[in-house]
Amino acid sequence: MDNRITRMLGVQYPIVQAPMGWIARSRLASAVSNAGGLGIIETSSGQLDEVRAEIGKMRELTDKPFGVNIAQAFVRDPDIVRFVIDQGVKFVTTSAGDPRKYCEALKGAGLTVFHVVPSLQAALKAIEAGVDGLVVEGGEGGGFKNPREVALMVLLPLIASKVDVPIIAAGGMLDGRTMAAAFALGAEGIQMGTRMVSAAESPVHQNWKDAIVAAAETDTVFLNRFGPGPALRALRTEKTTRMEKDPPPDGPMKEFGNALDLYFGGDMEASIALSGQVAGRIDSVRPVADILRDTIEEFEAVTADLGQRYGRA
C-alpha cells in the first residue's frame, strides 16, 4: 500500500501495534515489523534499562522499521527524549500528556512524531504543537482512556474533518473490514492493541489470551470514570466487576503493583487485564504474520466490493 502513513513510517502496510506496557517488547514488535507493519516498543512500564535492552534485541530480530512510544504520565525520567533519540529510531508516538512537552525536541532530532488523542480539543492542541500526525483513539479501545470517552465512529470523522495530517485509527481495529471502515472515516492507518495482546507472539500468559478469546462484546468494564487518576477499559473479571460497582477511593493504579503476576503468571485476579471491546470479536490466537496478511487481503476485498456495488459506472 502507498499512502502518507506507509511513506512516513517506511513500512509495507499502514498497520501499527499498540505500545502496551510490558507487552510491546521485542518478541511482539519484531513480529509486527517483519510482517510488514510497524512494531512499537513501550516505555510505560518505566523500566528503561529493560526497554534499552529490548531495542537492542529488535535490531537482532528485524531489519525493518520500528518505533518507540513515550507515555508521558508514566515515564518520569527527565532525559526520556535523549534516551529515545539515542536509540536511533525514526518514529515515536507520544501519549498521556501534553504534546508540546517533547514534540519540538524530537522533531529537532529528525524523528517523526505522532501524538495519541481522545478528543477534538486534544487533536487541535497536538496540531498546534507541530506533530506530524495523530493516533485517534476511540473509547472502545483498551487501556488508559479519557474519562469522557468517545466512540471511534464519532471521533475519527470529526477530527479528520478538522485537520490535514495523516491519522492512525485506534479502538476496535481487528481486521480488513474495520480497517476499511476507518479509512472511509478519514484514517490512513490503523493501530491494533487487543488483537496483538492475543497474538501468538504476544508474551502474555495463555490465560489472558484465552480470556480474550472467550470474551463477549459486553465483557469489558470502564473503570474510574470520576477519578482520581486516569480512566481505563479492561476485561471483566471478579476484581474489575467489584471495582466497577465500588470504585477504590484512591483510584485503580495501585492494582498494577501485581501486574506481572497477571501478565506473565496468569493470575487473572492479580491485577487489571486491559482490553478493548473488540475482544468480543476475537475467536482465536493467531500468528502476527497471518493477522496482517488476512487484514490486508480482506481490506482490499471489502473496498473492491463496495466500489463494485456502489460505485458509479
Rank of each mutant, 00 (worst) to 15 (best):
G10K: 07
I167E: 15
P147W: 12
K162G: 00
A200N: 01
A109R: 11
D305C: 07
R76H: 11
T62N: 06
L232V: 06
K57L: 15
V68S: 03
L111W: 02
V89P: 08
D261T: 13
G172A: 07
A270R: 02
V288S: 01
V204P: 08
A71W: 11
S33W: 10
L111S: 01
P147F: 11
T178H: 06
T6H: 01
S44A: 15
F83G: 02
H205T: 11
I296G: 00
A182C: 00
L152F: 12
R236C: 07
G280N: 14
Y310T: 12
V131E: 13
T240N: 07
G10L: 12
Y102R: 10
A216Q: 04
V163G: 06
R27P: 00
A24K: 03
S26K: 01
I282A: 07
Q191G: 01
R59N: 09
G229F: 04
P249F: 00
V285L: 04
E300R: 15
A24Q: 08
M192H: 00
E297F: 00
A313E: 14
L260C: 14
S44V: 05
A200R: 12
L28M: 06
V89C: 12
Q47L: 12
E217P: 01
Y263A: 06
G186L: 13
G142L: 10
A151E: 15
G138P: 03
E255K: 02
G39P: 04
R309E: 12
Q87S: 14
E217Y: 14
A160D: 13
S271T: 05
G307K: 12
S33Q: 03
A18V: 04
P65I: 09
N69Q: 11
A270F: 06
A279R: 08
P252Q: 07
A199L: 00
P118H: 12
V136A: 09
A123M: 06
L9P: 06
S30N: 09
A170G: 01
N258I: 00
S45M: 08
V89G: 11
A234S: 14
G265K: 10
D132Q: 10
G138F: 04
S271E: 13
V117N: 10
G39N: 08
A215L: 09
G227R: 07
M192D: 02
T237D: 13
I168G: 14
L124Q: 15
E255C: 02
L174D: 02
Q308C: 01
